[in-house]
């Protein structure tokens, strides 16, 4: 599904070129759950942003389903964001002035889904995450874990093929973190492709495959232990 070939990302300052990513090659198949790990500044988030079309690489090739997605027009990019991928963020990034319900609904509005269909879809998802009672609350009235659940719900409401999570548990206590990871795992089991960036070894293990980045270079790309243990 995802094919990255020789991706570079660098910044030029006056006298030197600083590489964030260097010659990254990566292939992700449909249905995979990939965890990207690495120390701060290793380029994990940049890699994820490039995959998510939020950032462009300085050099290299990137194709989705064998179709190059570099130099896409604004409109085409928006299309991918609406229909193909969903994002989860460390800081949740929920819209504070919107209720839980409205936050989840927003992507559908951009997608142009009709009001009645939207209601049904949001209700389904609320039901699934056991948040029906909380639908009229505002984000700041929820715990961190619950906020991130809303974040996930918002990311998957448009039924994306690819879910991109940037440290989804970074701001959470471990119990809540586990809950989130279990949710992601379940989504993966239902067939969704997931790529997550994480610091946490334990949470990385939820992925089927772990990629270790260091100074913008992929050092290791292995199947996770849990997969072995199964």
């Amino acid at each position: 599904m995802i094919h990255l070939n020789n991706i570079d990302k660098y910044y030029d300052s006056k006298f030197q070129r600083t590489f964030v990513l260097k010659a990254v090659n990566l292939e992700v198949k449909e249905g995979e759950f990939v965890s990207i790990m690495g120390p701060s500044g290793s380029g994990k988030s940049t890699l994820l942003n490039i995959i998510g079309l939020l950032d462009a690489p300085s050099a290299g090739e990137y194709s989705l389903y064998d179709k190059s997605v570099l130099d896409l027009k604004e409109k085409a990019k928006v299309d991918y964001h609406r229909n193909f991928m969903g994002f989860i963020f460390q800081a949740y990034h929920l819209i504070e002035e919107m209720t839980v319900y409205e936050n989840i609904e927003t992507p559908l509005i951009y997608k142009g889904v009709k009001s009645r269909d939207r209601q049904a879809m949001v209700a389904d998802l609320l039901d699934r995450f056991n948040m029906v009672a909380k639908k009229d609350l505002f984000p700041q009235q929820l715990s961190g874990g619950q906020q991130q659940l809303v974040g996930i719900a918002r990311a998957i409401i448009g039924k994306p093929k690819l879910l991109l999570a940037d440290e989804p548990t970074g701001n959470l206590q471990s119990v809540q973190g586990e809950m989130i990871m279990e949710t992601l795992q379940q989504l993966n089991n239902e067939g969704m492709t997931i790529i997550q960036v994480t610091h946490n070894e334990k949470f990385a293990e939820y992925g089927k495959r772990i990629i270790r980045l260091e100074d913008g270079i992929i050092r290791k790309d292995v199947a996770s232990k849990i997969v072995f243990s199964i």
Binding site: V78, H81, N83, F89, Y110, K111, G158
Partner: peptide, 11 residues
């Protein structure tokens, strides 16, 4: 907020 809205598909 604008960044986020863009990421979830706003033009």
């Amino acid at each position: 907020e604008t960044g986020l809205r863009k990421s979830i598909g706003a033009t």
